[in-house]
């Protein structure tokens, strides 16, 4: 709103607004995927055909939304996995596949599995019966992690609740990018700030240009 108000001529960076969007998180996630999947040859390459599974509280997640829009732009395929209570009722209109069963989604041997945090208040609002059941159905347990292909990435935007949505085995595995995401977040956000302050054509870039 501020960016479009005409009140200021500075760039405005969306650092995460409510349950709407979190563009810099999506940028750092995409950057992390490119570096891991393409290695030294990642510069200039998109994520064409990369299959990403995002698991957890989609309906309340700004990370899920921003990742969907950016990953689709880069050519990746996105599958959301969650109980129906944690998906928007209109999720069918989104350019994503939807599954309720995590094992079915993992059986398709995705390239990336991104786990989202389950906030404690969800447990008191009947989105699911209790944390044990959530963990059993939608948590990335050691057993589920073991079924993943060797090169598959395990991602999480943090902070994690170990034992609920993700097991120690998955979080601390070599496939895990979780600490790398934190480090890449610093670099990506520095780049965003640099570009928005220096501009590219003298004009302040708008929020959408940054995204």
């Amino acid at each position: 709103m501020l960016a479009g108000s005409g009140w200021i001529d500075a760039g405005v960076v969306n650092a995460g607004d409510g349950t709407h969007e979190h563009p810099t998180q999506a940028l750092l996630d995409a950057f992390t995927m490119r570096r891991r999947l393409h290695g030294a040859g990642s510069r200039g390459r998109d994520l064409d055909g990369v299959r990403v599974v995002i698991v957890g509280d989609i309906v309340h997640s700004r990370v899920a939304r921003s990742n969907l829009w950016l990953l689709r732009t880069l050519g990746a395929e996105v599958t959301f996995v969650a109980p129906p209570t944690l998906l928007p009722s209109a999720v069918g209109a989104w350019p994503a596949s939807v599954r309720y069963d995590l094992d079915d989604a993992l059986a398709e041997q995705p390239d990336v599995v991104m786990m989202l945090r389950i906030q404690s208040e969800r447990m008191h609002e009947a989105f699911f019966p209790n944390p044990r059941e959530y963990s059993r159905q939608w948590g990335l347990s050691a057993e589920r992690w073991a079924t993943l292909p060797d090169g598959a990435l395990v991602m999480h935007p943090g902070p994690m609740i170990r034992g609920l949505e993700i097991s120690d085995e998955a979080a601390d595995s070599p496939q895990s990018t979780i600490l790398e995401q934190v480090a890449n977040g610093v670099a990506v956000r520095m780049a965003v700030l640099f570009l928005s302050m220096t501009g590219n054509d003298g004009a302040a870039p708008t929020e959408t240009e940054i995204v």
Binding site: T19, R65, S89, W94
Partner: peptide
């Protein structure tokens, strides 16, 4: 609640 609320991230 619908397509737009899902996109805007506002509770439906």
């Amino acid at each position: 609640e619908g397509v737009l609320s899902a996109e805007l991230g506002l509770a439906g």
